[in-house]
Design a protein around this nucleic acid. Structure first.
Length: 379
RNA sequence: GGAUGAAUAGCUCAACGGCAGAGCACUGGCUUGUUAAGCCAAUGGUUGAAAGUUCGAAUCUUUCUUCAUCCG
């Protein structure tokens, strides 16, 4: 049982892209990697067997706020942690609930002490402090757990962004103090990643990245991006942060993103991604394929009996037709949600796997520049 | 053959003498550390047909057509 290890295997010559390997007590993760989001201990519409066999996921997410409300800590503790509870025995990363400070802005109040959330389920109030969020994530049992941060909206004015960043830094200190004074719960090692904030201000991002790096954690995350800012701005601050975060530790860009966002960010030095886009958009009829984007609701697919995507090595994508998947989604059949989700996730995992292959081969940048226009086009 | 009722958007129905509407379907778009199998928008009409009453008719009257139910 050991702390997370990151082996940097190949660094691209023409960009900052890297191919690496993360080792955790629940197994290895080849980077760059995309991590499906399983908020309440389930990647919506996709079983753990499908995640492993069809999607070929290597690590999935859980969410502190949502798992704390349901099923609750007593159940998770009695189960022996989330891995045993949900039957996913590869690595798990839990988000801290910091994003819910942003997404549930109408139902919460921020103070120096922490955040009071009003449950979206029953209206009950819950105080989340950095200490409590560490304790909760200890109990959930993720291999990688995230610092409790404030994710400020875009746009934020400079003064708000600075105060927000200072709060996140104060909370980061408290997170590490608590994390370092509490034991692993279930016989394997947990790792705490700090999160860089600073909104869209270069001096704040610089200060925050340096502060995060000073924690000497086993990995670092960049938060507060992909919240509505222009894409070029997202790349700008991603690049800035990557240049300040340690080279020999995995870098995780939280919440990103579109297929091209991911490829561009890999080029900037990001190793880990998560996003609800493949699952949520899939459930809502948007398919990402190796040939471009499909709105499977469109009537033009009604009698298109070609397979969903023959350009990726996924059994479901090579088996079911576009017309059939369209029918399932139109008819609101549960199977439609499952097939669309598995396809989109398999596509994302294929994409980061290809990126990795091309980094190792040494032609990543030209491959990326060729494929992005294809992935963006609307079919 | 007779009686009764019905006919309004693709479907199911509102509006009952004063600007013809909704839900669903269809079409298009949105979704970035999931409050989202969600949200938004745009289409869509000689109110079954014809005549009449009226300042004004989907609405009242008459005839016809079609459908439903019941009775022979």
């Amino acid at each position: 049982m050991a702390i997370l290890q990151f082996d940097l295997q190949t660094t691209d010559i023409q960009s900052s892209a890297r191919a690496g390997k993360i080792t955790t007590d629940h197994g290895e993760i080849l980077t760059p990697i995309f991590m499906p989001v399983g908020t309440v201990g389930s990647v919506k519409a996709v079983s753990q067997q499908q995640l492993s066999q069809d999607v070929k996921a290597q690590v999935i997410l859980g969410n502190t706020y949502h798992l704390y409300l349901r099923p609750g800590l007593e159940t998770l503790e009695a189960a022996g942690g989330l891995h045993k509870f949900n039957g996913w025995h590869q690595p798990i990363l839990t988000d801290s609930g910091g994003y819910q400070v942003f997404s549930l802005a109408a139902n919460r109040k921020i103070t120096q002490e922490g955040v009071v959330f009003q449950s979206h389920i029953d209206g009950s109030k819950h105080l989340f402090t950095p200490e409590k969020v560490m304790d909760i994530q200890r109990t959930i049992g993720g291999d990688i757990i995230m610092a409790f941060d404030e994710c400020p909206p875009y746009p934020s004015d400079y003064n708000y962004a600075k105060k927000s960043m200072q709060l996140t830094h104060d909370w980061l200190n408290r997170c590490f103090t608590r994390f370092n004074s509490t034991p692993d719960r279930y016989g394997y090692t947990q790792n705490l990643f700090p999160i860089v904030q600073g909104s869209t201000f270069a001096d704040l991002r610089t200060a925050s990245a340096e502060f995060a790096a000073s924690k000497n954690a086993t990995g670092n995350a960049i938060g507060g991006l992909s919240v509505g800012e222009p894409e070029e701005m997202m790349y700008e601050y991603t690049a800035l942060c990557c240049n300040l975060l340690p080279v020999n530790k995995p870098r995780y860009l939280m919440g990103v993103g579109t297929p091209w966002n991911i490829l561009e960010s890999i080029a900037l030095g990001i190793d880990m991604f998560d996003c609800v886009m493949p699952t949520r958009n899939g459930r809502n009829a948007m398919l990402f394929t190796s040939k471009g984007i499909i709105n499977i609701d469109n009537k033009k697919w009604e009698k298109d009996f070609s397979v969903i995507d023959d350009g990726i090595p996924n059994e479901l994508s090579n088996y079911y037709s576009k017309a059939y998947l369209r029918h399932l989604l139109k008819a609101k059949e549960i199977l439609g949600l499952t097939i669309a989700s598995i396809h989109n996730l398999a596509f994302y995992l294929w994409l980061v796997g290809e990126a990795r292959n091309h980094i190792v081969q040494g032609d990543f940048v030209s491959w990326k520049n060729n494929i992005i226009p294809v992935l963006k086009q609307r079919l």
